[in-house]
């Protein structure tokens, strides 16, 4: 069980503020989905929690302020899967997953490290790609490799930025099932930014809805996702459906005109 707590977190890129007074406290071993329209601050919040960005206010992980932690301590606590797109020079899939061991390994790659790399590669089902050049893979394959890297990192909290962005529906389901399995079996806390509300509702235990850099609501998916709130946050008329297997489904109907993003 880990706790993530923020207190009046504010962040701006130059003069453009992105996060205002984000304050929340999570005691969880579960999956938290950050939802909200473009520019609502989901990615920024994730990057603040991993101390890639330096916001005002405080962020506590297990009651310890991340500003007092070393880079390596943060890396052993928090894993971060960015949106893919970075070229990686002369690296095989194995090499990229091995990077996940950076905070743990000594100069030599120990047996324990290789065990963990193998585990991560198998978990994502990318054994066949292990010797391939990372840059030659499809976007979806690269995304899986990056998730495997974060798994190899063995963190207590896993941050994912749009993890299913470039995956087709088959691979979306696979990847999310994997993440959800890991979270259930190891108690790893997962925080992921997700666009698709139906996906968020299906896999997340908790939702945090953001708009214009502030928290609109936190709660269980079925409590949070209502047509009124979707209209409030997204300016979209939507119908909420329910399928016995797929669970809650958000069917967007039309954009409400006249409201600038």
């Amino acid at each position: 069980m880990v706790t993530i707590a923020t207190d009046t977190v504010k962040f701006s890129y130059g003069s453009a503020p992105v996060l205002y007074n984000v304050t929340f406290r999570l005691e969880t071993g579960a999956i938290l989905a950050l939802v909200g329209p473009n520019g609502s601050g989901k990615t920024t919040l994730i990057r603040c929690i991993d101390r890639i960005l330096h916001p005002e206010g405080s962020i506590l992980i297990n009651e310890q302020n991340i500003h007092t932690m070393s880079r390596n301590d943060i890396a052993t606590t928090i894993g971060y899967v960015p949106q893919n797109g970075t070229k990686i020079a002369a690296a095989t899939v194995f090499d990229v997953v091995m990077m996940g061991r950076t905070p743990h390994m000594s100069w030599r790659l120990g047996d324990g490290d290789i065990d963990r790399i193998e585990y991560a590669i198998q978990l994502l089902g990318i054994e066949d790609l292990a010797e391939r050049d990372y840059n030659e893979l499809s976007g979806g394959q690269q995304q899986k490799v990056l998730i495997a890297r974060a798994i190899a990192q063995d963190p207590k909290i896993l941050l994912l930025d749009e993890p299913t962005n470039s995956l087709d529906i088959h691979h979306q389901l696979e990847a999310l099932a994997t993440i959800s399995d890991i979270s259930r079996s190891t108690g790893m806390t997962v925080v992921m930014a997700v666009h698709d509300l139906s996906i968020a509702a299906r896999y997340a235990d908790m939702l945090m809805m953001l708009k214009n850099g502030t928290i609109v609501a936190i709660g269980k998916p079925e409590e949070l996702i209502t047509p009124e709130r979707i209209r409030e946050v997204y300016n979209v008329d939507a119908r909420i459906l329910y399928d016995p297997e797929a669970g809650l489904i958000v069917a967007p109907l039309r954009a409400v005109p006249g409201v600038a993003l």
């Binding site: 890396a75 960015p82 690296a91 990077m99 950076t102």
Partner: peptide, 18 residues
Amino acid sequence: RSLNTLSAGDEAAKSLGV
């Protein structure tokens, strides 16, 4: 080791403890 990780980009490297 840090140089290897750095090849994944500054942010990824930071997040991996470099």
